[in-house]
Amino acid sequence: MTDEASDRASLTSRKIDEMVLSTEDNSLTAPRPPPDGLSPVQRAQYRFQVKGNIVITGGTGTLALTTARALLEHGASGLALWDLEPERANTSLLTLHKDFPHVRITTCHVDLRSKPSIATALSDTIKVLGPLTHLINFAGIVSVVPSLSLNEETWRNTLDTNLTGSFLVSQALARHFVENSSPEDRAGGGGCIVLIASISAHATNFPQPQAAYNASKAGVVSLTKSLAAEWARYGIRVNCLSPGYMDTVLNEGEGLDNARRIWKERCPMGRMGHPWEITGPLVMLCGEGGRYVNGADLMVDGGSGVF
């Protein structure tokens, strides 16, 4: 038998790994309706209650810090802000400590392109907060370069940070969630992951050329759906959020005046988003009322993604 014929024959006898879905009797994926006897106000609070310790990557950015405050307001018991330069959050951190004095808050330096860096940050965070329950991944970079001029290094760095980084940090936290889950414990177990994609995953941005960023964020949406399917049986929900153009410091400056005008004109609501406006969807995804939301991509873009 020739080598080619042998290779073809081996294909017909190969076995592939197959994912396993959850079942109705799995307590890790069972519903958790509000307990009996709650008042209407208590039921409303329960619906958007966020429990446990949360890791937010890209933690010094405006959207991340706005989200951190919202999750603390809804009951998170611990918070870790991971970033390449966590010291940039020092002022905001002091304010959070003042406003939430009974909550444990910490920061960690981490490079999401590096598994050892993620492992160190995870170990250090667990020492301070204990078992973790949520991951929200804001970390990412954008490169605005015409594709004919885009070099390989910039392409790879964008994909490594935005897409590979999303996978590596999700994998690390998911393994931690599994280690700390008990099917016998109906009150706990599992975990929640929210990846941050973008309207760039759904429609080509205009007027800025950013093919690498767009491709990386489309990958994040697809990754979300794959991980949601694989990890549901462990009680781990994986969703993503696709913000539109948000009015943050990253989108300020006279050099962006023309782009900002175009972004507003092409948005059905006629404006950019306020950072506060992503907090409602994120709290829903992280809270008790979002337990049956899995593999979703929520667009928070004022309708910009329809074009």
Results as ranks from 00 to 15, higher is better:
Asp83Pro: 08
Asp83Glu: 03
Asp83Thr: 00
Asp83Cys: 02
Leu84Cys: 05
Leu84Gly: 06
Glu85Asn: 13
Glu87Gly: 10
Glu87Arg: 12
Arg88Ser: 12
Arg88Val: 13
Ala89Arg: 01
Leu93Val: 08
Leu93Asn: 03
Leu93Gly: 04
Leu94Phe: 13
Leu94Tyr: 14
Leu94Gly: 15
Leu94Asn: 15
Thr95Arg: 15
Leu96Gln: 05
Leu96Glu: 06
Leu96Thr: 01
Asp99Ser: 14
Asp99Ile: 08
Phe100Ala: 07
Pro101His: 00
Pro101Val: 02
His102Ser: 15
His102Gln: 15
His102Thr: 15
Arg104Asp: 13
Arg104Asn: 11
Arg104Val: 14
Ile105Val: 07
Ile105Phe: 01
Ile105Ser: 02
Thr107Ala: 05
Thr107Tyr: 05
Cys108Phe: 11
Cys108Glu: 15
Cys108Ala: 14
His109Ala: 15
His109Cys: 14
Val110Thr: 09
Val110Tyr: 03
Asp111Met: 01
Leu112Asp: 02
Leu112Pro: 04
Arg113Gly: 10
Lys115Ile: 12
Ser117Trp: 03
Ser117Asp: 02
Ser117Pro: 05
Ala119Phe: 09
Thr120Gly: 11
Thr120Trp: 09
Ser123Cys: 14
Ser123Lys: 14
Ser123Ile: 04
Thr125Arg: 07
Ile126Ser: 08
Ile126Trp: 07
Lys127Phe: 09
Leu129Met: 06
Leu129Val: 00
Gly130Asn: 04
Pro131Glu: 03
Leu132Gly: 09
Leu132Gln: 02
His134Gly: 07
His134Leu: 07
Leu135Asn: 00
Leu135Gly: 00
Ile136Phe: 05
Ile136Met: 04
Phe138Tyr: 01
Gly140Leu: 04
Gly140Met: 03
Gly140Ile: 02
Gly140Thr: 00
Ile141Ser: 02
Val142Met: 12
Val142Thr: 14
Ser143His: 12
Ser143Ala: 15
Val144Lys: 12
Pro146Ala: 09
Ser149Lys: 14
Glu152Val: 15
Glu153Val: 11
Leu159Arg: 05
Leu159Trp: 05
Leu159Phe: 08
Thr161Ala: 05
Asn162Trp: 01
Leu163Asn: 06
Leu163Thr: 02
Thr164Val: 09
Thr164Trp: 09
Thr164Arg: 08
Phe167Met: 07
Phe167Thr: 04
Leu168Val: 09
Val169Gln: 06
Ser170Asp: 05
Ser170Tyr: 04
Ala172Pro: 04
Arg175Tyr: 13
Arg175Gln: 10
His176Tyr: 07
Phe177Lys: 03
Phe177Gly: 03
Val178Cys: 09
Val178Arg: 08
Val178Trp: 11
Val178Asp: 09
Asn180Val: 12
Ser181Trp: 05
Pro183Asp: 08
Pro183Leu: 01
Glu184Arg: 14
Arg186Leu: 13
Arg186Cys: 13
Gly188His: 13
Gly188Tyr: 10
Gly189Trp: 06
Gly191Cys: 00
Cys192Ile: 11
Cys192Trp: 07
Cys192Val: 11
Val194His: 05
Leu195Thr: 03
Leu195Ser: 00
Ile196Arg: 06
Ala197Tyr: 02
Ala197Lys: 03
Ala197Cys: 02
Ser198Ile: 07
Ala201Ser: 01
His202Asp: 10
His202Arg: 08
Ala203Ser: 12
Ala203Val: 14
Thr204Ser: 12
Asn205Ile: 12
Phe206Ser: 09
Pro207His: 07
Pro207Cys: 00
Gln208Thr: 13
Gln210Phe: 06
Ala212Asp: 00
Tyr213Ser: 01
Tyr213Arg: 00
Asn214Ala: 12
Asn214Gly: 15
Ala215Ile: 06
